[in-house]
Design a protein around this nucleic acid. Structure first.
Length: 443
RNA sequence: CGGGGCAUAGCGCAGUCUGGUAGCGCGAUAGUUUUGGGAACUAUAGGUCGCAGGUUCGAAUCCUGCUGCCCCGACCA
């Protein structure tokens, strides 16, 4: 992508409403635009990141055996009356009437609807286990939305729902998502720690929150330091291996980890002094097992091996990709701007042409741009007629992990500068060496 | 939902007390000179002063009502 043809409305000054760093940087980098309280439009740069986050989540959900569907944002109130939540959910639910005066709502979550899909189509225990998920916009009419997309009213959520014959099966489904989440967050470039959680209005008695540590987090967390050094499950983990998955979950729940709501001060104090981590955290995932809470009232039953109908055991599993984007910034930034993990960076490489109009630099940039693009790498080529300082500032602000700086000084020696955003390291290399290092292959 | 603020150009703000016909910085656009960490000069564009009513010869400014947004707390993915 040539920056001169891109839509990147960068702000030099901080918008006054943005208090926390991720909100500030997302606005300054032209990733989002607020349209109403807690409601945001995603601009090209922001959408790129959001889509990359979604892609990783999707791959790991699919790997675990979950099946992607797409449920609507607008739902009929009738389903929610069946579960009893139409009254219980309160003012956080955005209620709508259609032209026929029918009660509708903008979905805050999808347990009822997915349960309806299930009961309409599944009759036998032989069709279990089943896990259906989608990535869809939700609306929760927060009393006080804040922190940009971190706590917005409209937000994107990946929500998965598992269906099993009994508790043992449901526990395995729960473990699959637990492991999938560990892999997902590791691939997103963050250390997420599972913590015992309250189940809140969703209900149920088995639940974990996944939190990443960040000084601006809304939650107060306490955990054992060793979690930060744990190795996430490998890509070839066998999701059908019941004992194997349980082993992974056991390991990741063996040490102390809790948010303030579930904090056990005595247990935490018993940890060795050098193992205690007391910090702030951001919740980026939450998984629940809630048994027959919805399947029983909504009559989502299957015929068991003994020929009797039983309500299925369910769980739900959520990740907020839009919040994840903000959380990644909270966890990765410096004075100059965002530092993206490679996996979700909007562009892997930025090319800064320091002297647009100079034949030599233009040609070198064009060669690099063409070669990287041909290698399937997302490249942002800053071909604007701007001074070098402005280009450096832009690249750093939007956080491109690898920056190729092409100017007359370096080219006089046949070299370009390869800069790593995270470490700040700069290497003077030939154009060919630069391409080898960025593409991992010989020209 | 309690408490406190704010609303004037794309962004940040002054002007409001004391009514007199719209201003600053940054940004944008064009040109020139520049060019290795957010350049200088010149020119240009851009605002029904949140909305509606009222007072007045005259309202960004005073009065009334409304709306939107932000912050703190409680609540929450």
């Amino acid at each position: 992508m040539r920056l001169s043809r891109y839509f990147l409305p960068i702000l030099r000054e901080n918008p006054k409403e943005a208090e926390i760093v991720s909100h500030r940087l997302m606005l300054r980098a032209g990733m989002i635009k607020q349209e109403a309280a807690g409601i945001y439009a995603w601009l090209p740069l922001g959408l790129r990141v959001l889509n990359k986050v979604n892609a990783i989540i999707r791959e790991e959900q699919n790997r675990s055996g979950a099946l992607e569907i797409m449920m609507p944002t607008v739902q009929s109130a009738d389903l929610w009356r069946e579960s009893g939540r139409y009254e219980d959910y309160g003012k956080e639910m955005l209620r709508i009437k259609d032209r026929h005066e029918r009660d509708m709502l903008y979905g805050p979550t999808n347990e009822e609807m997915v349960t309806d899909i299930f009961r309409s189509n599944v009759r036998s225990y032989k069709d279990l286990p089943l896990n259906l998920y989608h990535i869809q916009w939700k609306f929760r009419d927060e009393v006080r939305p804040r922190f940009g997309v971190m706590r917005s009213r409209e937000f994107l959520m990946k929500d998965a729902y598992s269906f099993d014959l009994d508790y043992a099966g449901a526990k395995h489904s729960y473990n699959k998502m637990f492991v999938a989440y560990l892999r997902t967050f590791a691939r997103l470039g963050v250390k997420a720690i599972p913590m015992v959680a309250d189940t809140g209005p969703i209900g149920g008695d088995l639940s974990h929150e996944f939190l990443i540590l960040a000084s601006t987090g809304e939650s107060e967390v306490f955990c054992h330091k060793d979690y930060l050094g744990f190795t996430p499950p490998a890509a070839d983990v066998d999701f059908d291996d019941v004992a194997g998955l349980q082993g992974i979950v056991d390991k990741w729940t063996s040490l102390y980890a809790a948010t303030s709501e579930k904090h056990d001060a005595a247990a935490f104090e018993a940890l060795p002094a050098d193992a205690k981590v007391s910090a702030r955290g951001i919740e980026i995932g939450h998984i629940f097992y809630f048994g027959t809470k919805y399947s029983a009232p909504m009559k989502a039953t299957v015929n068991g091996p003994d020929g009797k109908d039983v309500p299925v055991h369910m769980g739900s599993y959520g990740i907020g990709p839009s919040r994840v984007v903000a959380a990644l910034i909270e966890a990765g930034h410096d004075e100059a701007g965002i530092i993206w993990p490679d996996a979700v960076a909007p562009f892997q490489v930025g090319i800064a042409n320091l002297k647009v109009g100079d034949g030599t630099t233009d040609a070198a940039c064009a060669k690099i741009y063409k070669a990287l693009t041909a290698a399937g790498i997302d490249v942002l080529y800053d071909d604007r007629d701007e001074r070098p300082g402005a280009k450096f500032a832009t690249m750093d602000l939007i956080g491109l992990p690898n920056q190729v700086i092409v100017g007359p000084k370096g080219l006089a020696e046949g070299k370009v500068e390869l800069k790593n955003r995270r470490t700040g390291a700069r290497d003077l290399v030939s154009v060919d060496d630069c391409l080898v290092r960025l593409t991992g292959r010989e020209p």
